[in-house]
């Protein structure tokens, strides 16, 4: 067992999701103590024992609601120890067609993917800046690289989050604090279950997790998982708007 006094800690916001669980496991495998934060955190007890049994690291659970912005400062104070790494995996896709017709639903998607994650990482950024160390990781999406008819409400919120992370990275670059933007393409998760996803460019949550840990270790800025998505999005973002607007992709 590692020396707990110098053991690093990772906080995973959205620890219930498939990607969140996988990221927690990957950091634990690297020797990190894990703090899992989610709504109804108490019923993550089985995940807590799973991570701690598999990797022999301490795991704690924390109640957290990304939409409850008023309680965010108190949430950070309640952690006791300021983590070394904070990863936000929080997100909500919803159904594009329903979101278009219902402002409450679309506001919820926007707030869950942009407002909430940006605000909480912003608060951690301030504390990390004060301490002069730490890594912030935002799991955004390739959907934020260009708005498409099929998911632009979700995509626009992710675009906002991506821009926020980029700005935060710029602000903190010389303050000892690093910011990583993770942009997964298709991932086999509960969120995408039942969708027909193209096998070769669809990642498992574990691949996203490993790429995330590697990006933190190596101090990368933006990572696409799988890497082929960087190329795909490069092409998609360079299609002239006059053509793009008539395409269905």
């Amino acid at each position: 067992m590692t020396d707990t006094s110098r053991q690093k800690t990772v906080l995973v916001l959205g620890g219930r999701s498939d990607i969140g669980r996988a990221i927690a496991h990957s950091f634990a495998a690297d020797g990190y103590a894990v703090a899992l934060a989610a709504r109804n955190a108490a019923n993550l007890e089985t995940d807590k024992s799973d991570i701690s049994l598999r990797h022999n690291v301490p795991v704690s659970l924390h109640e957290f609601d990304v939409l409850d912005t008023g309680k965010m400062e108190a949430f950070i104070d309640s952690l006791g120890v300021l983590p070394d790494v904070v990863v936000s995996v929080v997100g909500l896709m919803g159904e594009q067609a329903e979101n278009e017709k219902d402002t409450d639903l679309s506001a919820r998607v926007m707030r869950s993917n942009y407002e909430g994650p940006a605000l909480i990482l912003g608060l951690f950024a301030n504390r990390f800046e004060e301490r002069g160390s730490g890594t912030l990781v935002g799991v955004s999406s390739v959907a934020g690289d260009r708005g498409r008819a099929t998911n632009y409400i979700y995509g626009s919120a992710k675009a906002g989050f991506t821009a926020f992370l980029s700005g935060l990275r710029n602000r903190l670059a010389r303050k000892g604090v690093h910011v990583v933007t993770v942009k997964p393409g298709f991932v086999r998760t509960q969120m995408t279950e039942g969708m027909k996803l193209p096998g070769p460019i669809t990642a498992d949550p574990e691949e996203v997790a490993q790429a995330t840990v590697k990006a933190v270790r190596k101090g990368k800025n933006t990572v696409y998982t799988k890497p082929v998505w960087a190329l795909i999005m490069l092409i998609i973002t360079h299609i002239p708007e006059a053509i793009f607007k008539k395409m269905s992709i």
Partner: peptide, 9 residues
């Protein structure tokens, strides 16, 4: 395969 937690030892 997603019900794959180790619970106690």
């Amino acid at each position: 395969r997603r019900m794959s937690r180790m619970l106690a030892f």
